[in-house]
């Protein structure tokens, strides 16, 4: 069993929290994990990508090879498209639809999604709206994690427990709203 995940987004959108939760969950399950992330210049509103690998046998490369990721999990639609060469032919691209426009020449994405949709499995989800509806607008990253969770070989309860661990310091209310966001995203992907 192995799951290779490309996590993508823009600096500050919370992809490292997603990575931290899956990391805690994997450790709890006694699985092997490697997670490579971007630091330094790219954090100032730039593109951020993390390679997250979970497996029941030792993992060697910190980087995912092209054509072998099970999931691209992106909290921003433009960023989700950058990494499609990493996706397996039967992999799944799960992306937020809310655009993060901090560049003047932000392109039209619809044609690319339509074209890719003929070859790849794509789940598009308005995570920002869904997060607002669950009462915590900051939890859109947890909606996204929820939407990707059916494709990750870790039990739902274990991930929920990891959400608790990671957000514990911020209080019960934050823990609960992030759990709700996760479950809402999961339900969307399963329906």
């Amino acid at each position: 069993m192995k799951t290779d995940i490309i996590l993508a987004g823009v600096g500050g959108q919370g992809i490292l929290s997603i990575a931290a939760i899956l990391g805690a969950a994997a450790l709890n399950e006694n699985l092997y994990l490697k997670q490579a992330e971007t630091h330094g210049m790219s954090q100032r509103g730039g593109e951020v990508v993390s390679h997250l690998r979970i497996s029941d046998s030792p993992i060697y490369s910190d980087l995912i090879p092209l054509g072998s990721a099970e999931i691209i999990l992106s909290v921003e639609p433009l960023e989700s498209l950058r990494y499609v060469p990493f996706l397996k032919s039967d992999g799944c691209l799960v992306t937020n639809t809310t655009e993060f426009r901090n560049i003047a020449n932000y392109p039209k994405l619809e044609p690319a999604f339509t074209e890719l949709g003929t070859k790849l499995k794509i789940i598009q989800i308005d995570a920002d709206t869904m997060a607002r509806e669950t009462g915590n607008p900051k939890s859109s990253n947890m909606v996204m994690l929820g939407a990707a969770s059916p494709f990750i070989h870790i039990d739902k309860e274990i991930i929920l427990k990891a959400i608790e661990t990671v957000f514990k310091a911020k209080g019960d209310k934050v823990v609960e709203s992030n759990k709700q966001a996760f479950l809402a995203g999961r339900e969307f992907a399963l329906s």
Partner: peptide
């Protein structure tokens, strides 16, 4: 052999780092 991979759609622009 290289595996078959999807190509990056044309016209994607980068997000260069910028002053906050």
């Amino acid at each position: 052999e290289q595996p078959e991979i999807a190509e990056v759609p044309a016209g994607l622009v980068g997000r260069p780092p910028s002053l906050c």
